[in-house]
């Protein structure tokens, strides 16, 4: 019975992936990709990876989905004339390929698929690191093994990854993003939306804090909490309160860097005391990890909402150019 469910889920995921690439209209692609993310989240649940499921649903389907939707404003414009021109350009470039190269390509991909399937089918039992992580779990300061790996056993990866988020933000800036004040939009004048935002802001904050705290013992943690808090920033931005742009510069920069910076400075301090980088005394590991996670969540939230705000701004400028020409 459970094999049937898993099989159906697998087929669904493959179908959605294929369709999101083959769908003729971009809007369809993006929504099918959304659905693909949710199907994957279900797969994580089936594989007992609840932490991953929350992350996937929050970041990959949620945050990235919002970015894609926002991008549709550019690429699938509501003005039909422009859309047609784009579609024409699109279909013209599609017909250029020749038969023979295509055949080779598909044959190559088919062969590649076959050896990939053989590779995962014949994979030897590696045994994993479950036992090793289990033995050392009591020394890590937390009870959730995934949090223990993320924040203690492999804290270096997690730290670098927070660097990647910050680099991602800098990169969006480098691509020409400008932090500017969004015009107070229609949204903020809508009484219902206003109420919704006012209601959801504290709820999201609480829920994020809950996920952050529960990460010590169960599924949850800095990344999931960071995305939820980031959602607050996105909601406020869309509602016409672009608080990141309104914030004093130094405060924004502090929020963005505090996670990465504190993590590193703490690591250096313990290194100066004679240990290795990111080596915490076991007695304090629990509380230190909680502090690091809180600050990390703040930085992640700030970075994600800033990334959204910048991308949104790119669309806004495009709209302006459109309306002036």
């Amino acid at each position: 019975m459970s094999l049937i469910i898993d099989g159906l889920l697998a087929i669904l995921a493959i179908y959605l992936a294929l369709q999101s690439l083959l769908a003729p209209r971009l809007t369809q692609s993006v929504f099918l990709f959304f659905a693909f993310g949710l199907a994957l989240a279900l797969a994580w649940i089936r594989l007992a990876a609840v932490d991953v499921a929350i992350t996937e649903a929050a970041i990959a389907a949620g945050f990235l989905g919002v970015l894609f939707l926002d991008a549709l404003r550019d690429f699938a414009p509501r003005i039909p004339a422009k859309n047609e021109a784009v579609q024409k350009q699109y279909s013209k470039s599609q017909t250029k390929s020749l038969f023979l190269p295509r055949l080779t390509l598909w044959a190559g991909l088919g062969l590649f698929l076959l050896i990939a399937l053989e590779a995962v089918w014949k994979i030897p039992e590696g045994g994993g690191l479950t036992a090793a992580a289990g033995t050392l779990l009591p020394e890590s300061g937390v009870e959730n093994p995934v949090t223990a790996v993320l924040l203690n056993f492999r804290a270096y990866d997690t730290w670098l990854e927070m660097g990647v988020i910050l680099i991602g933000l800098l990169a969006v800036f480098a691509a020409g993003g400008k932090m500017a004040y969004r015009k107070p939009g229609v949204a903020s004048q809508d009484p219902l939306l206003r109420q919704v935002i006012l209601f959801f802001t504290p709820v999201l904050f609480l829920f994020g804090a809950f996920l952050l705290y529960i990460g010590k013992t169960g599924p949850g943690g800095a990344f999931q909490a960071g995305v939820l808090w980031g959602a607050i920033g996105i909601l406020l931005h869309l509602g016409g309160w672009p608080f990141i742009a309104l914030m004093p510069r130094w405060l924004g920069q502090l929020l963005l860097t505090v996670g990465l910076g504190f993590f590193l400075v703490l690591g250096f301090l313990f290194m100066a005391a004679g240990g290795a980088l990111f080596e915490y005394p076991p007695a304090y590991a629990g509380i230190l990890i909680l502090i690091i996670e809180t600050l990390a969540a703040i930085s992640i939230a700030a970075a994600l909402s800033a990334i959204f705000a910048l991308l949104n701004q790119i669309g806004e400028e495009a709209d302006e150019i459109e309306s002036t020409t």
């Binding site: 809508d190 219902l192 939306l193 919704v196 209601f199 709820v203």
Partner: peptide
């Protein structure tokens, strides 16, 4: 309850 809230407000926004 949260789903109700979210879906009703999104519904309103889209319709609006």
């Amino acid at each position: 309850l949260f789903t109700l809230l979210a879906s009703s407000s999104t519904c309103y926004l889209i319709a609006h």
